[in-house]
Design a protein around this nucleic acid. Sequence first.
DNA 1: GTACCTGCAAATGTTTTGCAGTACG
DNA 2: CGTACTGCAAAACATTTGCAGGTAC
Lengths: 167, 167
Amino acid sequence: MTSTPTAPLTPQARAYESMRTQGLRLTSQRKTITEVAFGTREHFTAESLLTRSRRRDSKVSRATVYRTLSFLVRAGLLRQVGIGQSSPLYDPNFADHPRHGHFVCVDCQKIVEFHDHCLDVRESIVTKDHGFSPKRVNLQIEATCDALRENGVCPRNSRAVQPKSKK
Amino acid sequence: MTSTPTAPLTPQARAYESMRTQGLRLTSQRKTITEVAFGTREHFTAESLLTRSRRRDSKVSRATVYRTLSFLVRAGLLRQVGIGQSSPLYDPNFADHPRHGHFVCVDCQKIVEFHDHCLDVRESIVTKDHGFSPKRVNLQIEATCDALRENGVCPRNSRAVQPKSKK
DNA sequence: GTACCTGCAAATGTTTTGCAGTACG
DNA sequence: CGTACTGCAAAACATTTGCAGGTAC
């Protein structure tokens, strides 16, 4: 089965492919959870994935969500990000864009994705200089929003921001 | 250890200073925990910090360790790293070297610290291009060890791969 | 038909919290 | 001396697991 070079598989197609390859059964729960996981570009928690999955199939259990999440991460299609202060988030954009990093706006807490080729190159060089071959990069930059400082509004935050006591 | 004019404060000195500044009491438990935390350059878990602290003062409680850890992180002297697969690790080298990143050797699981000025500069530029001012950077590079592939031995692993230290 | 899967609930592991006694400043 | 701090134990969470019944292949 030759895949067309110009038509990459969607993340869910790759997930099903992985399951098949590994001899795992394509159950309706796994399909629901996988579709819901990749049906958004927003980062999500295990709990919110459960909630959303249950809207499609009210019988989906928390255990199956955790088992499927763990499979998708192992398969390299999803990644856990952020150690924010809450539970870990899952990044559905990782499958298609594995090299992107994250800004975390400390003003509005929003996560903004970015990618920079120069960083990729330099990261690779530094890693090799240390005797390693890079496999996966996690870059998270906590930053303040310039617009908030200048205009009092963080454009990434739909609502007004109460300036934090930045004594 | 007399402080010379040009000698920067040690992390524990800065911690005590922070406590004083914020009107927190300098209790013996806080001193013990802080000294133990900064008495190593290895990353540690909350649980291992408790164990080591209890070797100095067997009465130190788990609650106080968590409360103190959380203070040290808020004070910017310690950072939580790694989303590995276990509980979060705390990095005692953050206070003195806030810009370093981590390699995680996928062969031996060991964490190796590094720092690269070019990366700092580029990260700053990219962040500003997106309308942010960088405050804190977390860079984690998972990588395979070249030496292992070539010689069958991962030089960063002094002994056989250590199972995760329980207890 | 038979493993593999699922949902449930209980178990685990980690961090937080309420409270009464303790000790720092 | 007053009050913030501590230890303890229970609570609050998040995630994993054992098991009996369901279902993809």
